[in-house]
Design a protein around this nucleic acid. Structure first.
Lengths: 246, 246
DNA sequence: CTAAAGGATGTGGTCCAACCACATCAAGTA
DNA sequence: TACTTGATGTGGTTGGACCACATCCTTTAG
């Protein structure tokens, strides 16, 4: 499974063997969400490899958002299976942004694309949409900038989840994570935060209204304008990502 | 940089410190694409950590598609910086598909979304589009099924690249990679491969023609029908992902 | 009998010192 | 000149040791 992507004929590295074993356990269902891996020393003996190799495999799975390692005893201890695809995608994207091989503008453009699509097909009876509405109210009664921005993140993620596509949701979250520090700096460039916040609130309401009105096309357009408008105001020259061209 | 996302107050794990150091080198440009990291033993001594911790960090970067480790001496040896975001995203997605937390249908739906968008804004003068045309000819003179499928993969990736968005290209590639084994099994379900291959060739030509005709909307629709038709014929019941709703 | 104190156990986290396989390069040799 | 042969430096792997931590269980004091 793992070595398929690079090496076909060479000897597999030991930690890849461990990875393969664990992935098989996951695929076959013998290891499920919330389940615990054997202890590192136990697993090493079972697979006849060193503990070091087992640990390298676990580090990778941890970076992939598949497991979480905890010391001590009890329920929070040991290596347990989780499901956090956003973490993996976000870290990877951030790293590649750091090497200047993924332009920030492309990330913003992709976010516009995904979020426009998501709101266009958001289900009005979705729990995520209800959460979005609830977040909207909280933002109305929120004077603190940082807290407002945190709520804003959750609002947009809720919108993305309303489409009911786990992959799109995960990618949206990872895009946000990848440029989080970047977005923070941009916000500092805004000339008048209060005015901007008021505008954002208004636009949020319009987006939600369009969705609840079953006007997905309008909602998509509003989202695109909302996001691009923000980055433009903050000084980032984005690519033209108007999804209406479709 | 790394620990920011989870732990603020606890002691950072040693390999995260190494990760942080390397990420700083990447961000500041002291480590660029094609550059080589210090040898593991050297780096361990520089950072005053064990070689084990250095190796764990490198394993993660390797899984993220940021570096490539090679033994021996010479140009291919040592740990060198690469840029393969597709590998990271693909592995992560595949792992989470294995845990049944990312439905295959969602992946296909996302692929339709991204690829439709890509062809809708593909630039007719793009080198990637020229490559797609070239691949089309090769597929016409290709009797072997496996080879045909390999060319098909490259054709669709070329289409995605024609939009000029590196993030979308990377995500497209990773989606393909994540369900590669799945798609292979589906292909075996096809009743009449020769007929299917002929249909695929025809559809590919129509897509390319629509793009060169500057009819992005039609190209997007054709792509969506092309992909969904294939999976439907092979027996996977996909979600409705008609991008025309935008 | 209850409750506090103190080990016993088991977990991941870290480090070290070796050794191996491999690939290149340089010196020595035919 | 052409070939062998070692020296060098890289990542790959191993076993063993010790630490910090959290829980559980026994012992002990009241």
């Amino acid at each position: 499974m793992w070595s398929n992507h690079i090496k076909y004929h060479w000897p597999m590295r030991t930690h890849q063997l461990v990875l393969q074993w664990i992935e098989n356990q996951l695929s076959s269902g013998e290891l499920a969400l919330g389940g615990r891996l054997p202890a590192e020393r136990t697993l090493a003996e079972q697979l006849q490899v060193s503990r070091t190799s087992v640990r390298e495999a676990i580090r990778i799975l941890e970076a992939m958002g598949v497991v979480r390692a905890g010391v001590g005893s009890g329920p929070d201890a040991g290596t347990v299976v989780i499901a956090d695809p956003t973490a993996a995608l976000g870290s990877a994207l951030r790293l590649h942004v750091a090497t200047s091989h993924l332009p920030v503008a492309d990330i913003v453009q992709t976010r516009v694309l995904l979020e426009s699509w998501a709101v266009a097909r958001a289900r009005t009876d979705s729990p995520a949409l209800a959460e979005a509405a609830s977040l909207l109210e909280k933002m109305d009664a929120c004077p603190d900038t940082d807290e407002f921005l945190a709520l804003d993140v959750r609002f947009h993620l809720a919108l993305a989840e309303a489409a009911g596509n786990a992959v799109v949701s995960a990618m949206m979250g990872s895009l946000r994570e990848a440029i989080q520090s970047y977005a923070g700096k941009l916000t500092a460039n805004l000339p008048d935060w209060d005015a901007t916040a008021a505008r954002l609130r208004s636009e949020h309401r319009n987006i939600l209204a369009a969705i609840n009105n079953h006007d997905g096309g309008r909602a998509a357009g509003l989202v695109a304008a909302h996001i691009e408008g923000y980055y433009k105001e903050a000084g980032l020259g984005p690519k033209d990502s108007d999804p209406a061209r479709l």
